[in-house]
Design a protein around this nucleic acid. Structure first.
Lengths: 200, 200, 200, 200
DNA sequence: TATGAATGAGAATTCATTCAT
DNA sequence: AATGAATGAATTCTCATTCAT
């Protein structure tokens, strides 16, 4: 707790603005959203935003930083080392699905921008997805070494393993009502789906 | 053949502009792309574009229309009626993967806009994805009726079935180099993956 | 001594701010300088400045007032009355050059603003330069009456007499390094230059 | 004449805008002048200006470029080589005074900006004044070598020689009405003044 | 039909000034 | 009296769209 009260207050204001920004941007996209709209949603004047963010792009960076904060990605390799596949899936699926659900609006803000802006996507991808894939790859490699699954490219398996999560998220972002309305159902089905898909 | 030569020429010009637009927009996004850039890429003057498109948004609609045109979605229900699951997967996966690959740039243009613009996503989704899901749902219902797979919500199964396709596409759009470089490999793996995932 | 201690304190604060303002403005100009920069240089908060100055323009007026304060322009007519030209030049040049040198930063602040703002230049000019020229004109008139120099328009002579001072100052403001580095040398040369230029 | 008609038209437009800019800026300074005002004076829309200039600063550069264009500074060293001082002064004064008079508004725009912006002043000074001083210095050196004037620092002499021109210009910019109204008179007086000031 | 210069509405950003603490 | 966060008017600049040639 080295933060002074001033700094905490400043951080709280930043969060307020980021909350407002996520809300507006998730509905109409970053480019279509004006500073005026964000300020209005946050209940402050346009200019005030610039006391907390250098630029509009800086707000986007602030939103992205949210994805790394209070990260629940505690799926450290250590924990997975001796897990059998069923346990691995059980441990993996639920937090992943919960994270998508909990950060849905934020993800909806960030993904379209990542797709259209390589300068953004590269570092985010390297920071968030690459480590995840490395972990999953390593785990698959262990399984292969133990001959519990068939030999294959672990990098490919890891991405295939991750693909339905991202796919469901996309369907939801595209407005699929069934996915939006039955997220819990998908969570359960996903576990069975993945277990069967990868077992030997 | 109600098209006059004039109309065919006009259509050819539209296609030229759309090609140019897809190329530029897929790299930097729709909002960041200017009419000037599209015109320049198409080798024509800014103003000329407005002889073929009402507005910038209209170009986007033209690009979207591409996704419905020369549709290879011949997976008509009729053909699937008596297919066993392995055959269905075999028939489904490859064209789907090829379509994503072949229309990658176009999809990269359209998806971010669909996510950030409900007015766009709704009709596209209804036109492209809803029929697909209906078809797959119907097929899964048949399998369930024939007790070849376990009972479950066919709508959910259809979306789960489609999710890894969309997920791989997203990973590629986000810049994942392994997915981009090994699309054919993913195509093969996907077939096995789906067969095992859904078999009884 | 009608000044209360309060008023003296206030005046001291004003001077502190003016010092800071001159320093910053002389480097980047009045318009480009922000209240924040002045406050920061003065070591106080933005808002505090407004306890001492009505507005940003008022700070400029405060700086200008410096040029009239503690005036060394004691070249009162009385003293010049019986001076021969050599003595007049000797008496005139050095204080003039010293004044430019000593107030260089202040002058560098004020001149660009005077040039671009007639509402400012008129009163300053009338207050500072007009009396100077009147004095010099009067002196030249005396010399002409005494036939010590050729007949001419004394107003013109006065301005011609003053022009090299202002010209050297300008060259220095424009960044001429030779003038900046050899101010004393110019002071000496100026005396000979003016004596020869005006003698009969 | 390698210019195409298009390029000439573009140049004519640029000149139109620069004319308007000089007129407005010379009255209220560069910083206080808005693009809207320049556009309005030029009789065009704000946006149109940006078809001809990259930015507001670029307009200033355009104005500055005027000072180098169709330069009448034909006082090439060659011509001065065998001139006696009276002839040199005669040849120097009139064009110099005429140039100030003819470009008065432009100079009034450029000088205040040069004083407050070292990034501008340095290159302009090097381009316009340094060559002038070099020429005059060289000439003075010749005179000294021929013992036609007393020995002194030629760099200093050159700047002292130039100072009354710049000083008169400044007095005029500061609003001195006598200088403004009697420029021709000053031109004549300047010649005598300089001849007497420097002769042995 | 094609052109591309002109337009001006709209967006991001700055900053003098205010005012609650 | 001092502070500095908040304000919003004003400014620069962009770019979709129009239209005279």
């Amino acid at each position: 707790m080295s933060d002074t009260f001033q700094e905490q207050l400043k951080q709280a204001r930043r969060n307020l603005i980021i909350d407002a920004a996520i809300e507006v941007i998730s509905e109409q996209g970053f480019q279509r959203t004006t500073i005026k709209q964000i300020a209005s949603k946050a209940g402050i004047a346009d200019g005030t935003i610039y006391n907390y963010f250098k630029s509009k792009d800086d707000i986007l960076l602030g939103i992205i930083a949210r994805l790394s904060e209070d990260e629940t990605q505690d799926l450290s390799l250590a924990k997975t080392e001796r897990l059998d596949f069923a346990a691995f899936v059980a441990m993996f699926v639920s937090p992943r699905m919960d994270e998508i659900d909990g950060r849905y609006q934020t993800l909806k803000v960030v993904f379209p921008e990542m797709i259209t802006n390589a300068a953004l996507s590269r570092p985010i991808y390297d920071q968030i997805y690459t480590p995840l894939f490395v972990m999953v790859e390593t785990y698959f490699q262990q399984l292969m070494d133990a001959e519990q699954i068939d030999m294959a490219d672990p990098a490919l398996l890891a991405r295939l393993f991750a693909s339905p999560f991202m796919g469901l998220m996309m369907l939801r972002m595209l407005g699929d009502e069934h996915v939006a309305a039955n997220w819990e159902g998908y969570k359960n089905a996903m576990s069975q789906f993945l277990q069967k898909a990868f077992e030997k």
